[in-house]
Protein backbone atom coordinates (compact mmCIF):
# COMPACT_ATOMS: atom_id res chain seq x y z
CA UNK A 1 0.00 0.00 0.00
CA UNK A 2 1.54 3.27 -1.08
CA UNK A 3 0.56 6.37 0.79
CA UNK A 4 1.28 9.77 -0.60
CA UNK A 5 4.27 11.75 0.56
CA UNK A 6 1.87 14.35 1.97
CA UNK A 7 -0.10 11.75 3.95
CA UNK A 8 3.13 10.40 5.45
CA UNK A 9 4.22 13.88 6.51
CA UNK A 10 0.82 14.68 8.02
CA UNK A 11 0.88 11.41 9.91
CA UNK A 12 4.28 12.18 11.44
CA UNK A 13 3.30 15.75 12.33
CA UNK A 14 0.05 14.54 13.89
CA UNK A 15 2.13 12.52 16.34
CA UNK A 16 4.61 15.28 17.04
CA UNK A 17 4.19 18.58 15.31
CA UNK A 18 7.68 19.63 16.36
CA UNK A 19 9.37 16.92 14.27
CA UNK A 20 11.85 18.84 12.12
CA UNK A 21 11.92 18.65 8.35
CA UNK A 22 15.40 17.14 8.57
CA UNK A 23 14.17 14.26 10.71
CA UNK A 24 11.04 13.74 8.60
CA UNK A 25 13.26 13.56 5.53
CA UNK A 26 15.33 10.81 7.12
CA UNK A 27 12.23 8.91 8.20
CA UNK A 28 10.79 9.01 4.70
CA UNK A 29 14.02 8.50 2.78
CA UNK A 30 13.70 11.93 1.24
CA UNK A 31 15.48 15.28 1.39
CA UNK A 32 14.93 18.16 3.76
CA UNK A 33 14.20 20.44 0.81
CA UNK A 34 11.48 18.16 -0.50
CA UNK A 35 9.84 17.93 2.92
CA UNK A 36 10.00 21.69 3.47
CA UNK A 37 8.52 22.29 0.03
CA UNK A 38 5.67 19.85 0.66
CA UNK A 39 4.91 21.39 4.06
CA UNK A 40 4.97 24.88 2.53
CA UNK A 41 2.58 23.73 -0.18
CA UNK A 42 0.18 22.27 2.36
CA UNK A 43 0.32 25.42 4.46
CA UNK A 44 -0.33 27.55 1.40
CA UNK A 45 -3.24 25.41 0.31
CA UNK A 46 -4.74 25.51 3.81
CA UNK A 47 -4.29 21.78 4.30
CA UNK A 48 -1.96 22.30 7.24
CA UNK A 49 -3.57 24.99 9.35
CA UNK A 50 -1.82 25.08 12.68
CA UNK A 51 0.69 23.19 14.85
CA UNK A 52 -0.72 22.79 18.30
CA UNK A 53 -0.32 21.09 21.67
CA UNK A 54 -2.05 18.60 23.91
CA UNK A 55 -1.95 19.79 27.51
CA UNK A 56 -2.76 17.89 30.68
CA UNK A 57 -4.73 20.73 32.26
CA UNK A 58 -4.87 19.05 35.64
CA UNK A 59 -1.16 19.68 36.03
CA UNK A 60 -1.02 23.31 34.86
CA UNK A 61 -0.63 25.94 37.56
CA UNK A 62 -3.09 28.35 36.06
CA UNK A 63 -6.79 28.01 36.58
CA UNK A 64 -8.38 25.24 34.59
CA UNK A 65 -10.46 25.98 31.56
CA UNK A 66 -14.06 24.79 31.53
CA UNK A 67 -15.03 22.72 28.52
CA UNK A 68 -18.56 22.01 27.36
CA UNK A 69 -20.11 20.02 24.56
CA UNK A 70 -23.32 21.59 23.37
CA UNK A 71 -25.91 19.86 21.25
CA UNK A 72 -27.61 22.39 19.06
CA UNK A 73 -30.79 21.91 17.05
CA UNK A 74 -31.49 24.40 14.28
CA UNK A 75 -33.92 25.09 11.48
CA UNK A 76 -31.93 25.00 8.23
CA UNK A 77 -32.30 28.19 6.25
CA UNK A 78 -33.67 28.61 2.78
CA UNK A 79 -30.97 28.23 0.09
CA UNK A 80 -28.19 28.17 2.68
CA UNK A 81 -29.00 24.98 4.59
CA UNK A 82 -26.82 24.67 7.68
CA UNK A 83 -23.85 26.66 6.47
CA UNK A 84 -25.03 30.13 7.43
CA UNK A 85 -25.84 29.16 11.03
CA UNK A 86 -22.68 27.12 11.33
CA UNK A 87 -20.69 30.10 10.17
CA UNK A 88 -22.30 32.35 12.76
CA UNK A 89 -21.66 29.88 15.56
CA UNK A 90 -18.07 29.28 14.49
CA UNK A 91 -17.19 32.96 14.62
CA UNK A 92 -17.48 33.17 18.38
CA UNK A 93 -14.03 32.91 19.96
CA UNK A 94 -15.52 30.82 22.78
CA UNK A 95 -16.27 28.09 20.25
CA UNK A 96 -13.39 25.71 19.91
CA UNK A 97 -15.07 23.40 17.39
CA UNK A 98 -18.33 23.11 15.55
CA UNK A 99 -19.42 19.93 13.74
CA UNK A 100 -22.54 19.10 11.73
CA UNK A 101 -23.82 15.79 13.06
CA UNK A 102 -26.04 12.95 12.00
CA UNK A 103 -28.66 11.83 14.51
CA UNK A 104 -30.84 13.51 17.09
CA UNK A 105 -29.38 17.02 16.85
CA UNK A 106 -27.66 19.11 14.19
CA UNK A 107 -24.47 20.64 15.57
CA UNK A 108 -22.01 19.57 18.20
CA UNK A 109 -20.39 22.75 19.48
CA UNK A 110 -17.33 22.56 21.72
CA UNK A 111 -17.07 25.62 23.94
CA UNK A 112 -14.25 26.70 26.26
CA UNK A 113 -14.57 29.28 29.03
CA UNK A 114 -12.76 30.40 32.17
CA UNK A 115 -15.69 29.54 34.48
CA UNK A 116 -18.91 27.58 34.47
CA UNK A 117 -20.81 30.84 34.58
CA UNK A 118 -19.03 32.17 31.47
CA UNK A 119 -19.92 29.10 29.48
CA UNK A 120 -23.54 29.17 30.71
CA UNK A 121 -23.80 32.81 29.79
CA UNK A 122 -22.45 32.13 26.34
CA UNK A 123 -25.07 29.45 25.77
CA UNK A 124 -28.04 31.39 27.12
CA UNK A 125 -27.15 34.84 25.85
CA UNK A 126 -25.37 34.18 22.58
CA UNK A 127 -25.91 30.69 21.22
CA UNK A 128 -29.53 29.89 22.01
CA UNK A 129 -30.80 33.27 20.84
CA UNK A 130 -29.26 32.96 17.38
CA UNK A 131 -31.75 33.04 14.57
CA UNK A 132 -32.61 29.50 13.55
CA UNK A 133 -31.45 27.81 16.77
CA UNK A 134 -34.40 25.89 18.22
CA UNK A 135 -32.82 24.15 21.21
CA UNK A 136 -29.55 23.48 22.99
CA UNK A 137 -28.36 20.85 25.43
CA UNK A 138 -25.19 21.59 27.38
CA UNK A 139 -22.84 18.92 28.73
CA UNK A 140 -19.91 20.02 30.86
CA UNK A 141 -16.71 18.02 30.68
CA UNK A 142 -15.89 16.72 34.15
CA UNK A 143 -12.57 15.07 33.47
CA UNK A 144 -10.46 14.29 30.43
CA UNK A 145 -9.18 10.75 30.30
CA UNK A 146 -7.96 10.82 26.74
CA UNK A 147 -7.50 13.64 24.30
CA UNK A 148 -6.32 13.36 20.71
CA UNK A 149 -5.12 9.79 21.19
CA UNK A 150 -3.19 10.67 24.34
CA UNK A 151 -4.30 8.88 27.50
CA UNK A 152 -3.82 11.10 30.58
CA UNK A 153 -1.78 11.37 32.61
CA UNK A 154 0.98 10.26 30.34
CA UNK A 155 4.02 8.89 32.14
CA UNK A 156 6.67 6.53 30.89
CA UNK A 157 4.82 3.40 29.92
CA UNK A 158 7.75 1.35 28.66
CA UNK A 159 7.57 -1.73 30.83
CA UNK A 160 10.10 -3.72 28.87
CA UNK A 161 13.40 -5.03 30.16
CA UNK A 162 16.43 -2.96 29.15
CA UNK A 163 17.88 -5.63 26.90
CA UNK A 164 16.19 -8.72 25.52
CA UNK A 165 17.38 -11.18 22.88
Amino acid sequence: MNRSFAAEILDILAQDSRTSAAIIAQMLNSTEEAVLAEIARMEKENILLRYTTIVNEELTEDKETIHALIEVKVTPQYLQGYDAIADMISRYPEVRACYLMSGAYDFMVLVDGPTLRDVSRFVTEKLSVLNGVTSTGTHFVLKKYKDNHVVMPKGSDDRRQVITP
Binding site: D158, R160, Q161, V162, I163, T164, P165
Partner: peptide
Protein backbone atom coordinates in the same frame (compact mmCIF):
# COMPACT_ATOMS: atom_id res chain seq x y z
CA UNK B 1 21.64 -6.46 30.59
CA UNK B 2 22.68 -6.63 34.24
CA UNK B 3 24.95 -3.60 33.89
CA UNK B 4 22.51 -1.54 31.81
CA UNK B 5 19.51 -2.28 34.03
CA UNK B 6 21.29 -0.73 37.04
CA UNK B 7 22.39 2.41 35.25
CA UNK B 8 20.45 5.64 35.63
CA UNK B 9 19.53 7.79 32.63
CA UNK B 10 20.54 4.92 30.40
CA UNK B 11 19.00 4.90 26.95
CA UNK B 12 18.61 1.45 25.51
CA UNK B 13 18.44 0.29 21.92
CA UNK B 14 18.78 -3.24 23.19
CA UNK B 15 15.26 -4.51 23.25
CA UNK B 16 14.13 -7.35 21.01
CA UNK B 17 10.41 -6.75 21.29
CA UNK B 18 7.89 -4.22 19.97
CA UNK B 19 7.35 -0.94 21.83
Amino acid sequence: FDIAAEMEDCISLGVGEPD
